[in-house]
Amino acid sequence: MSSIDGGKARARVKKLFFRKLLPLSDMARRGAAYFPMGADPSAATYYVARNATRMSRGDFEAPVCADENEFGKKLAALWERSGNPELAKCAPEMAACAGLLYAPEEIDDEVSPFIYVMF
């Protein structure tokens, strides 16, 4: 639904991908894969047991990000917790991209209180 229009944002995203993420691909291919790519004949089941089986009150509030700094911090914390320090290092750059990409839809007309009426 959206595309990157700003040249600056586009360049930053490109840099993030090629300089920060792509070097991690080799590592992922060499065995530290983030997810399995196919069947495992030795596995009895493919179900993954959830760590948290219920949503706590904190879970409802956790994803809120007031600005890109908060996003960067939460992202880094998420990846530290999940054992992905290599990604946590990329979080500040992703936060910077988020700041540049922030592009809310233009709300170009008033929403009439009768918008759903037929006239």
């Binding site: 639904m1 959206s2 990157i4 586009r10 991908f17 990000c65 988020a98």
Partner: peptide, 14 residues
């Protein structure tokens, strides 16, 4: 990645 960044970092996050 470019498209997802625009969609998630540019919109969904906010």
């Amino acid at each position: 990645f470019e498209k997802a960044a625009a969609s998630i970092l540019g919109i969904k996050l906010w």
